[in-house]
Design a protein around this nucleic acid. Structure first.
Lengths: 114, 114
DNA sequence: TAAAGATGAAACCAAACGGTATCACGAAAG
DNA sequence: CTTTCGTGATACCGTTTGGTTTCATCTTTA
């Protein structure tokens, strides 16, 4: 069964959250550290990070009174996989042939609507 | 200057819109045809398609009183490009794991086995 | 032990979102 | 010309989202 794409796509839909992802791609950071880089309250940043966590895109690791968050890039895999379905439309002649042959053998099959 | 990612990511955040994209990947369809495949009103589907249009992911082509919409897969490019920034993490993580194992086989600590 | 630091959690708010119903308009068909 | 068909547009509604403020909890440190 495929993982539920929706939480990840949802998490990626906000520019602040995309920025956070790239920050965490360079260092693991505490919530406060992340919040210091944005012009919004810590509570708002924490909400964003919760959405990222629900999308499984980041993970928290408690260290004393700090919670270090780190990127979980593997969770982007289903997203890129979904997007790669559209690769066939990028002027690859072989893929064009394949899509012509396949025609309707792989209809929209997303099952992640709740 | 890079294209604005936000409209495309926004458009992809809804499962109905993702389904529409895959439908249009197979045939160009009128709004009514698309709406027939969903359990919601035509007006609702049209709203979704407007969001897709704002993300430049689909295009409309007026034919008489019909408007045929077709996929514009090229607009997914900036999205996949943005995501590809994270490729380094699963690729590098594998190689990092390899070097970790080769270098120090006595600390199999914080690696998540998939 | 008390104070300070980092976080969790809840209440609250305006705006955006996903959907509906309704009406207007231009093209096609009778 | 009149009707019908596909669409555009608008108003409206409940829920979600992105943000704030405030207070509680737990950990470190003086």
């Amino acid at each position: 069964m495929q993982p539920d794409l929706q939480p990840a796509f949802r998490a990626l839909a906000d520019p602040t959250r995309r920025d956070i992802l790239r920050m965490l791609g360079q260092n693991r950071m505490s919530i406060g550290q992340v919040a210091d880089r944005f012009d919004m309250t810590r509570a708002a940043v924490r909400k964003h990070m919760r959405v990222l966590e629900e999308g499984n895109l980041i993970r928290f690791e408690t260290h004393g009174r700090e919670r270090l968050s780190s990127l979980n890039a593997e969770a982007l895999r289903p997203v890129t996989d979904w997007l790669s379905w559209f690769d066939r439309f990028w002027d690859d002649k072989l893929s064009a042939l394949q899509s012509t042959l396949a025609e309707d053998s792989s209809a929209p099959d997303e099952k992640d609507r709740t």
